[in-house]
Amino acid sequence: MGITHEVELPTEEQLTVQEINLSGPALKAGAFHLGKACEWENNEFILCRDELKDARCCLDEGKAVTSCALNFFRKIKKTCADEFMQYVHCLDKSSPDQQFTPCRNTQAVFDKCVKDNLGLDRPPYDYFARVHVHETERPRPEKEGPVLYPDATPGLPKDAPRPAAKYGSRYLWMW
């Protein structure tokens, strides 16, 4: 493997946080409210990942995302556990790929519960597929300029004489 000891890799303690112990249907059921509740953290993390293109630089942002999601699901468990589990079961059992369409009734019940208890509205169906503006304090990463080689051929000066071509046209297809 091409990873030497000079490459900094975070230790196990830095990487160990409590992960979200939920299965796919539960994540799908909570997806819209979760995305709305943790919008800032999610955007910050994805911005970091896209800007720096290195998983090692965005560990703190990633931990913030996970803890925010964990908090959200804890709140759901405290307030809307029954409605949530009903919705999860519906998503899980109604279609092979967890479609939302067959579960609008249970979804409405869950949405109402979340609205009443957490004050969170369900965002529109295409909310997370839209373009959003993200306000952040994160400094813009430096742009890498073109590489300058010290021994590069200097090239002709701008005002170098350009005499007429001795042996025919210097342009193809333009004689």
Binding site: K28, K36, C38, N42, R49, C58, E61, G62, K63, A129
Partner: peptide
């Protein structure tokens, strides 16, 4: 679009876990 949107909403969380 709704399915896609839901996937995008949980993507950061999954990515964070996967990165670690």
């Amino acid at each position: 679009l709704e399915m896609h949107s839901a996937s995008l909403a949980i993507y950061p969380m999954l990515l964070a876990e996967r990165d670690r």
